[in-house]
Amino acid sequence: MTIETGYNFGYLDENTKRMIRRALLKAVAIPGHQVPFGSREMPLPYGWGTGGIQVTASVIGPQDRLKVIDQGADDTTNAVSIRRFFAKVAGVATTERTSGATIIQTRHRIPEVKLREGQILVYQVPMPEPLFRLEPRVSETRRMHALADYGLMHVRLYEDIARHGHIAISYNYPVMVGGRYLMSPSPIPAFDNPKMHRMPALQLFGAGREKRIYAVPPYTSVQSLDFEDHPFQPIRANAACALCGARDSYLDEVVTDDKGGRMFVCSDTDYCNTRQAAREAAE
């Protein structure tokens, strides 16, 4: 079945989809473990979400409704570009409503609204290896995962505390999945980490350039690394959204002039719009 352009449904050929689908199933069966896959060259550059796109292309069907966000927003340029790509090569319906989507492809955020069963969250991942800053050699990190030897990461966090009094990681904050695998949550703000824990939706992660797929099944334990006397603390700006008044959402800081003026608004545009609409309806 072809939609426009002469390419297969979902752009990828069926052999490639099968290969990715097999990798996805193993990823779900081994939560947090990075499964290598034969990532293809996509018509978008590496770093622009080729991993997430390949995962979405292997999962998506005509019944789906796709939402794509970048930085929490549906109308950032890269989100628009990816949404258009799927509208063109898969002819699927797209939506900006979190609650109405069956597949949400994201870069750098988890939506504020609690996701539910029947939804799939696809993360675009630049560096799947949580240990890469501490050990760049893939052959070494693979061995560490095999032995569940994560001492390096604990030492790094401990050194942060000794030096700064805090763990100095604010995004891409490492997590333990199912008590076994250390995993990169992708560069989401640490604020979003707790949403991953026992999420009812399926979470899939695609790293195209690094050629890795991993997953967190629904209702699976995802714990941000911390110490008893230095518990994990999600951070957000201590302010309310200037548009919808939310005090529970992650905020973008917008500089309004060159005299130090700034305002804070929700990063999740659908969350913010929904709240504004509800407020208007109530008035």
């Binding site: 770093g47 622009w48 950032t76 750098h108 955020r109 630049p126 703000p189 973008d252």
Partner: peptide, 21 residues
């Protein structure tokens, strides 16, 4: 080139976290 150039995509959500940190 993809990975080097992807740095020009928006990263303001993470940067906001770094600011607060």
């Amino acid at each position: 080139t993809g990975f080097v150039e992807h740095l020009k995509l928006p990263h303001y959500v993470d940067f906001q976290s770094e600011l607060e940190k």
